[in-house]
Structures are given as C-alpha cells and as structure tokens.
Write a protein that binds this DNA or RNA. Structure first.
Lengths: 255, 255
DNA sequence: GTCTCAAAACTGGACAGGCCAATTATAATA
DNA sequence: TATTATAATTGGCCTGTCCAGTTTTGAGAC
C-alpha cells in the first residue's frame, strides 16, 4: 500500500489536535468539563497515559485547565502568542498605535512600492468597493489585505510583523472587536474612499501624503469608535469619552 | 510538620523545570543528547511516564526535539514568545522599524510627558553618562530604560508594548545582538549626547524635534551597524552593504 | 421534611513493567 | 576495506495498579 502516510505524528499530538477541534467546534464550551481521562481513552481508543500527554499539551497551550480530583475544564484560549494578552489594550490605544505606525509604514512604502504591489492594491480596492454590501467577513479580509500589502511594501519584515500583530490584536479583544464591528456597520463607503486616497498617494509616490491620509483614515476610525461608544455608553461614561477626545486630538496635531 | 508546602506543582512540571535549569546552565548544550528516558527516570527518582510528560513539555516550548529511536536532543531555544522567531528579522530592518516607531512615540510623548517622567529620564541620562566605561550590561539596561520611559510616556500600552518587543527582539537574534555589541563598543559617548538631545526636545515639549532627534539617533545606530558590517564583511558582501546604504537613505528622506 | 456529615464513587497523579518499532552500534562476512 | 546482518539502545505506547484529592450520595440527627 502506497497510500500509507510515511510519517504519522506522535499519538498524543493527534489526540490533542482532535481535542482542539472538538473545543473549537463548540462541542466542549468554555467552563465545561471534558470527559474523564479514562473515558477519553476509550473514546479515542488509546491508553490513558497518551490522553494525559495530550491533555498536558492542551494545558501548555492554555486550552484547558486540569483540576486535581475534579477534571479537566475548557478555559478561554488566549492564544498565548499575543503580546498584549495580559495587558488589556483598549480599542483607542490600539487604533492610535496603528495610526502612528501605519502612517509611517505608508510613507516608507510610498518610496519603495512596486508596480505589482500597486496593482494588488487596486484589485483589493475593487474587492472592497464591489463586495461592499456583502458579508462583513469578506470586507474585513479585503481591508486587512489592503493594509498588509502596504506594510509589506516597506520591504521590512519587522514593520509588517508589528502591523499584522496590531491588526490581529483587535480580534482577540472582545471589546475591541465589538467596537470595530460597530464602526463597520455605521459606514463602510467613506472607508473605501479613504483607502483609495491612500492608494493614490502611494501611486504618486508621495510619502507625506501617504502618511497623512493613512493617519487620517485611522483617526476617523477612532472618531467612529468614539461615536459608537457614545451611542451605547451610559451617562456615567460620558466624561471619559470627552477626555478621550481631548487626548486624541493631541495625536492629531503632533504632525 | 508545618514546613510541608501546601501546594506543590505537578511532578512533570517540577521535572521539566529541573531539566530547563540543566539546559540553561550549560549542563546539556545545544545538539547534545539527553540521557535516555529510563536513565532520567532513575536520576530524578520518578517513573518513566512522568519523564515523558516533562519531555513533551520541553518539546512544546521548543527546548528539545525528540527523535524516535534515537533520543531527545537539545535544540536552540527560540523563546517562542517572539513574533519574529520564525521570520529572521535582520538588524537593519529591526532598527529601521525602531527609528520610525520610536520617532513617532517620542513625538507623541512630547505632548504628554509628565514632570516626573522627565525627571526619570534625567536620572537615566546620568546613569548612562556616569557608568559610561563600566560594564556594557549596566549601560544597556540604562539605554533600554531611557527608551521605555519615553514609550510609556505616550500613555499608550499598545505603543510601549510594540517598542519593548522590538527592543527585546535584538537579544534573541544572535546576529543582531552581535551587531549591537559592536556598535556599543565603537562609540558610546556620542550616543549619550544623542539621548540628551532627545531629552531636551521632550522637555521643551517639541514633538517635531523629538521625532527628528530620536529618528536621527537610531539612524546613526544603523550607520554604526553598517560600519561594523563593513569592517568584518568579506568583499563579497560589500555590494549588499551598498544596497543597504541606498535603501536606508530613502527612509531618512521621507520625513 | 430538612440539615449535617461521613462514606462511597469519581477523577486526576503517579508508578511498575512490559512489548513493539525505529535507530544506532557492533560484529560477522564478502 | 567495504558491506551487511545482528544485537543493543531508545523512544512509543499499552495494561494494570494504587494513591490522593474532589464530588456525590445517602443515612442519620434534628
């Protein structure tokens, strides 16, 4: 038989993967207790030591928490790889950082971007404009693609890594994710227009314009978040919003 | 006995920690094979399954690699937490990213820095100037402290996290670390002067000046790295250096 | 009927010993 | 000397067992 996989992973890894799949598919939800090790062993047709090894693997990747004498419980998976996981970076801070960093990245990209990359950007813009009213997921994918093309156009993997990290971060924070969702729903079309302006600046190879437009774009996102916040915020939170307005107006003026 | 620790960690974790200690202490160096699982079990007075669990833990943290039928081998430990670990970010890219991002951070910090933070900066400057000719470790600590005070003065944890990440990254890359070492040895005094200029700009609350001076400081670091590279580079590498010069001259002119 | 608390059932923690398969070292052979 | 077959080593995995916390249960007290 040549269909036999020549190298199969270690057993505990296979089991661990299956367990992760079950957890991420919602079979076992957060807080829920997994079946006993003995039962899991029977389910997967493996021995208990193997189950233990798989559980340890999940534990080290903080998928589960094992409580002596009680069981192993699914916990919130903080992906670990996020540097902000323990810092609770809010949507404002995150977007402000993006405004500064991506602004600089756009300026640098303007001096180095290739024709091929410009072409890619144009295509992505069409995706965004065309699939405007389709599902948000597609739009978001195109959005990320646009920003990442620019980041990579800097030819600096440190820069693109940081920008991708900041982008991904918004997914891992529940609050931030909700905020961005609200912003997306409030008005996407102006966003497409803003992206196009950035594209034009890059095409013209104008660093200053690219920086300013990218920064302006993300600053508008902050504004949108502020508005969304105001809508849903209770009266008690309002003075904080005002403080934020003051605070981010400073960012805007330091250029 | 009341000296009994109320909660001792799981056995495999204790074993894993001991193994990590042994590895980091140089008892087992990179490429070396660890004793057989059976021997380790005897050494630590635990059962073999426990050893296996500990080895799996080390494996998941990429301390070791286990080769079926051969043994478990110590590999280079890439701390995993670095987002760049798999991307091989060179010293030039890293420093360019720092120049852009820390420049912006300095500009933002100039608008928000407190008197207390300025005072801290002044103290750190004294440390750097005073312990100039002492061990490099102290100097480097003061250097990082200086940059991180500014990063934190932005009052934006996303920004300070990114900057700290970039700083730490230079430790994890052997090449980058060597480069920075060379730069440190070549001339520290001008570096102190450059830091002082940044400090003055922050004290004057001048965003533009703070950005320019911080950027200039890090650009000079790139120059130093280039020089260090030239000294040790073989002839074949020289054209790459020239390309780098061209490339980073662009960064300098986009402001 | 309700509450208390101890016993039993359940669950993870750890161990012993064994067999198999892949690898490596060794010795026998061409 | 080079090659190949054999033996020793090593990780992979299993069965079975006992122990120590945790949870549930149920009997007895009120």
């Amino acid at each position: 038989m040549e269909s036999v996989p020549q190298k199969l992973p270690r057993l505990y890894q296979q089991v661990a993967e299956k367990l992760v799949t079950l957890i991420e598919s919602g079979e076992y939800t957060i807080g829920m207790r997994l079946p006993a090790e003995r039962d899991l062993a029977a389910m997967f047709k493996v021995s208990r030591p193997t189950i233990r090894e798989a559980v340890i693997a999940l534990e080290l990747e903080s998928y589960v928490e094992v409580r002596m004498g009680s069981g192993v419980y699914v916990i919130e998976h903080s992906k670990g790889k996020s540097r902000f996981s323990d810092k609770d970076v809010g949507p404002f801070e995150l977007t402000e950082a993006r405004a500064l960093f991506e602004g600089e990245a756009a300026a640098l990209a303007a001096t180095m971007i290739t024709e091929a990359e410009l072409e890619e950007l144009a295509e992505t813009l069409d995706e965004m404009a065309c699939e405007n009213n389709v599902d948000t997921e597609t739009h978001e994918a195109a959005d990320k693609k646009f920003h990442m093309i620019i980041a990579r156009a800097t030819n600096n993997s440190a820069i693109s890594s940081v920008i991708e990290e900041l982008w991904d971060e918004r997914e891992s924070s529940e609050l931030t994710h909700r905020m961005y969702e609200k912003v997306r729903n409030s008005g996407v079309k102006p966003s497409v227009e803003e992206h196009r302006e950035v594209y034009e600046a890059l095409k013209a190879r104008d660093p200053q314009a690219a920086r300013e437009l990218m920064r302006a774009h993300l600053m508008r996102v902050i504004d949108s978040i502020l508005e969304a916040t105001e809508v849903e915020a209770v009266e008690a939170a309002r003075h904080q919003v005002t403080k934020n307005r003051e605070r981010f107006s400073k960012t805007r003026t330091i250029s």
